[in-house]
């Protein structure tokens, strides 16, 4: 690990100003991914700006009936929050499906969104990776990728985003509040994360120095019945092979509205928009769910060894939607 300077910020403006003063600064939240990456040599900041002391550790109800979640709220607190459990159970479930109790006690909301891929090549600095070392190549494309992307990958990157929480937030249409050198702005999810294209080194649309300060969940009454289902290679404490966040609004046997997002299938939390469009107005039946899922997966481009994720994800989606009936 390269030596770095540590500074603790007390407000967002101060954090941004401190960040800007160093050529390779990074913000430090719970550190559960950043410290991990620094120890691997994947990240080597010269300055860490600790933002856990910023006054963003509250979950508050918004006037519009939604929730505003401070970026420094710990994952475990958010999962246990009564309002989240009541109004957005999918979010609580997603958080609890991720990591371990110990990690959730450290990890923050902002940091969770900015987690980096667990692609094995990305994490090994002795090997090429376009995300870590632009232009060096992507060995995963032809190599080991049985747990990598089936949607939206590019010639330069086939990684997946590892977060569970972000999948639920993408389904809920969360809005990310950002402070930065250019002033505050809001980014709607799933628009925070980006597909790899030719620049997989950029996971998100954030500009250097921009700091997530809050995530706002818009009111979505039917999300009070929502679910997160995660499939992984052991019973617990593993990253997703496929995960599904879903909420379903049914009236008189017809789907009025729905939200479905997938984890473990793309460089971003994958909002299944084709599925949602297909399902809106359709009878709320297993058959409709299958048709809608098939519509979504028509655009999947599985790699040599991960085509199993297509039937797997389809089955999970259909199963979750049926449970929400």
């Amino acid at each position: 690990m390269r030596p770095f300077v540590y500074r603790r910020a007390t407000d967002a403006q101060g954090a941004v100003a401190t960040f800007e003063a160093a050529p390779h600064a990074m913000y430090l939240g719970g550190g559960t991914n950043l410290v991990d990456l620094m120890r691997l040599g994947v990240a080597s900041p010269d300055l860490l700006v600790d933002v856990t002391g910023l006054p963003y550790d509250q979950v508050e109800e918004t006037p519009g009936g939604g929730l505003r979640i401070g970026a420094a709220v710990r994952n475990s607190d958010l999962a246990a929050d009564a309002a989240v459990r009541r109004s957005y159970p999918v979010l609580s479930q997603a958080l609890l499906a991720g990591a371990s109790g110990q990690l959730r006690n450290l990890a923050t909301v902002g940091g969770n969104l900015l987690q980096r891929t667990r692609c094995p090549y990305f994490q090994d600095v002795s090997k090429p990776c376009n995300k870590r070392d632009p232009g060096s190549g992507c060995p995963a494309r032809e190599g080991e990728h049985h747990n990598l992307a089936i949607f939206g990958h590019s010639a330069s990157c086939v990684a997946t985003h590892p977060s569970d929480m972000a999948v639920a937030m993408a389904a809920l249409g969360a809005v990310v509040h950002v402070e930065g050198p250019g002033g505050p702005r809001r980014i709607g999810m799933p628009g925070l994360h980006r597909l790899p294209g030719d620049t997989p080194e950029r996971d998100t649309v954030l500009e250097p120095g921009e700091l997530i300060v809050a995530v706002e969940l818009p009111a979505l009454p039917y999300a009070a019945r929502s679910r997160y289902r995660k499939v992984r290679e052991r019973a617990s404490f593993a990253f997703a092979v496929v995960a599904v966040a879903a909420a379903l609004d049914v009236a008189d046997g017809v789907v009025r509205d729905c939200r479905v997002a997938l984890g473990g299938v793309a460089h971003v939390p994958w909002r299944a928009e084709l599925l949602e469009t297909t399902l809106r107005g359709a009878p709320a039946t297993r058959e409709s769910f299958v048709v809608a899922a098939e519509a979504e997966f028509a655009q999947a481009r599985p790699l040599r060894d991960n085509a199993y994720k297509v039937p797997l994800a389809r089955n999970v989606i259909v199963g979750v939607l049926e449970e929400l009936l």
Partner: peptide
């Protein structure tokens, strides 16, 4: 493991269990 993947380093930090391998000491003044 030194990467938060095994839990052997778990301690109680301000009353909560955490992976002490991923907690920078300076950040817990």
């Amino acid at each position: 493991c030194d990467h938060g993947q095994c839990g052997a380093c778990t301690v109680l930090l301000d009353g909560r269990r955490v992976n002490s391998c991923l907690a920078l000491a300076v950040a817990h003044q």
